[in-house]
Design a protein around this nucleic acid. Structure first.
Lengths: 198, 198
DNA sequence: GAAAAAACATACTAACTAGTATGTTTTTTC
DNA sequence: GAAAAAACATACTAGTTAGTATGTTTTTTC
């Protein structure tokens, strides 16, 4: 039961790549099995249906990546405001996985599936809540360690920053260039500076 | 040539409603003509194909609404920072046209079509640029009239705010409740306060 | 190494898709 | 009010979709 897991994983990875580029509902199962070089029998042996595969992509591929790329950078020592800026800057400008022309995978799925499929909604909610909690916790810690002003509302700041991230990803799609990110990043830095203990 | 225009407009409106709710590519022409109570002959008499109708929705329905709801509120006298907050608050909380569970029509189309269809991209770019220019101009004017700090970069602030708006619309979809907007709005107010001439 | 189960492959179906070809009705023009 | 053009309606096509039914091959188990 080792090769089977490998084909399942390769199907998941190819499917994710296609969905990230084309969108979920416009990525057909035929597309997926063609690029994975398997047949329909294999697909429906590993997945009950298309939606179950979609959920598997979120929980088995997106979730681990989220922890690695979005959460761990927030759990270091030091000033969380610096960590947040470095994280967003890194995600937008340097991350080799996320492409400007295709936006943010989680944001894309939220927009396409949100409020339509309850299972997708739950899986995506879990994703975003993990990121929210991590960022909120880092800000709270920053208040304790004297980096962040005491009157800062960590939850509000987190929602504000995450919204900005999702939004600018969408602008990037329009302009199809990372240059769209630069004014956002500059102003993010200004905004974060207002939260510092002067 | 008056009733013809009426059926065309009613098709556009129904199509927009369906696309706003279901998405562009998953709204079929059969859906549109069924809800409009016309037949395929009527559809292809008024529109060359589906994409041409999509562009028509943007330029004939979205654009006028944009000017009315997104731009005019920014062109009043007084403090632009107050105007911006009131605008965003109104769009999120009070606008009866925009529903929390379906997000922002322009943002949805950008995410779904962005970088795929050049015509959609152009039409949507024009939309966002109009809003960008209006907000940037209002901030610049606020600098002249002494409401806004001189060191504020109007373009950066505009991109920052608009990104936040698009992003929080997406979060609203997930939570399916306007409550998701509240922390964002609170922090937006805090942020705008940092731009004021103290 | 044979039986059993797992891991696929092939060939289909029924529903849906955008778009077309060819009608008919309604409106306008003179 | 008849000819002409505009505004539709009907019936189709060819391609695509998710999913199924039934095979065959490969791997595991004993």
């Amino acid at each position: 039961m080792k090769k089977a897991e490998a084909t399942r994983l390769s199907m998941l990875k190819m499917a994710f790549e296609l969905i990230y580029v084309k969108g979920y509902r416009t990525t057909s199962i035929d597309d997926i099995i063609a690029t994975t070089h398997v047949t329909k029998g294999a697909f429906y042996y590993h997945f009950k249906n298309k939606d179950e595969m979609g959920i598997a992509i979120i929980s088995e591929l997106l979730k681990p990546t989220l922890v690695e790329s979005f959460i761990q950078p927030l759990q270091q020592e030091g000033n969380p405001l610096d960590a947040i800026y470095e994280l967003i800057n890194d995600l937008l400008m340097n991350n080799e996985f996320l492409k400007v022309e295709y936006g943010c995978p989680a944001s894309n799925l939220t927009q396409e599936m949100g409020s339509w499929n309850i299972d997708f909604n739950n899986a995506l909610t879990e994703l975003t809540q993990q990121w929210t909690h991590a960022m909120t916790a880092s800000i709270e810690k920053g208040k304790e360690t004297g980096f962040v002003r005491q009157d800062v509302n960590a939850k509000q700041v987190t929602m504000f920053i995450m919204s900005g991230y999702w939004g600018i990803r969408n602008f990037g799609k329009l302009e199809n260039s990372k240059e769209a990110y630069l004014p956002f990043l500059n102003e993010l830095k200004n905004y974060l500076d207002t939260l510092r203990v002067s």
